[in-house]
Amino acid sequence: MGKPIIYFLCTGNSCRSQMAEGLGKEILGDEWDVYSAGIEAHGVNPKAVEMMDEIGIDIRNQKSSVIDSNILNQSSLVITLCGDAKENCPVVPKGVETAHWGLVDPAKAEGTEEEVNKVFREVRDEIKRRIENVN
């Protein structure tokens, strides 16, 4: 059998869950298979790509995808990153551990570019801290 699966879920699979997937692969990739998905697929947010580049993680080739029931059913840990995903996530099978990390949506940040970047960085760094505590 392969490595356990960690599945990060969000609304549009464009920002938070994409950053979580990139960070998860970087931090947990030796021990976990890491995936992300959304209730919908909105494409990978260019600002998320830019903010991940700042810390040396390239998520350009990640795909925005909707929740895959096969991956969901095989997951060891499912983490929802927003209330919408938590409310609308398909039923998680018994025996699959779940966690909810309610994070602000950086895509909704307003203000100057620097203010928007600050929100993206805060969310990215919070995801990183939490992923480092998964094992």
Rank of each mutant, 00 (worst) to 15 (best):
P4T: 04
P4I: 00
P4E: 07
P4H: 07
I5E: 02
I6K: 05
F8T: 07
L9G: 12
L9Q: 12
C10I: 04
T11I: 02
G12T: 03
G12I: 06
G12M: 04
N13H: 09
N13K: 07
S14R: 08
C15H: 02
R16N: 04
S17G: 09
S17D: 13
Q18T: 05
Q18G: 01
M19G: 04
M19V: 07
G22E: 14
L23G: 08
G24N: 10
G24F: 13
K25P: 06
K25G: 00
E26Y: 12
G29R: 07
D30P: 05
D30R: 13
E31T: 11
V34M: 03
V34C: 01
V34L: 03
Y35N: 02
Y35H: 15
S36R: 13
S36K: 11
A37N: 11
A37L: 13
G38H: 11
G38E: 11
G38Q: 08
A41G: 01
G43K: 10
V44P: 02
V44Y: 03
N45P: 11
P46E: 14
A48T: 07
V49L: 05
V49G: 00
V49A: 00
V49P: 04
M51G: 00
M51Y: 00
M51W: 01
M52E: 08
M52S: 02
D53L: 04
I55S: 05
I55C: 14
G56V: 10
I59H: 05
I59Q: 06
R60N: 13
R60M: 01
R60D: 05
N61H: 13
Q62M: 00
Q62D: 08
K63L: 10
K63Q: 15
K63W: 01
S65C: 01
S65W: 00
V66E: 15
I67L: 04
D68Y: 05
I71Q: 04
I71M: 01
L72W: 11
L72R: 06
L72I: 03
L72P: 06
N73D: 15
Q74E: 15
Q74A: 11
S75A: 15
S75I: 08
S75F: 09
S75N: 10
S76M: 02
L77P: 13
I79Y: 09
I79H: 09
L81P: 12
C82W: 03
G83W: 03
K86Q: 15
C89T: 13
C89Q: 12
P90W: 11
V91N: 10
V91L: 14
V91T: 14
P93I: 02
P93A: 12
K94H: 12
K94C: 00
E97T: 13
E97Y: 04
T98V: 10
T98Y: 05
A99G: 04
A99I: 07
A99N: 12
A99D: 15
H100E: 02
H100V: 01
W101I: 03
G102Q: 10
G102M: 08
L103K: 01
A107W: 06
A107V: 01
A107C: 05
G111Y: 08
T112K: 07
E113N: 14
E113S: 07
K118Y: 05
K118G: 00
K118Q: 14
R121W: 02
E122D: 14
V123S: 03
R124P: 09
D125A: 01
E126H: 01
E126Y: 02
E126A: 02
E126V: 02
E126G: 00
I127L: 13
I127V: 08
I127Q: 03
K128A: 11
R129E: 15
I131T: 09
N133V: 01
N133Y: 03
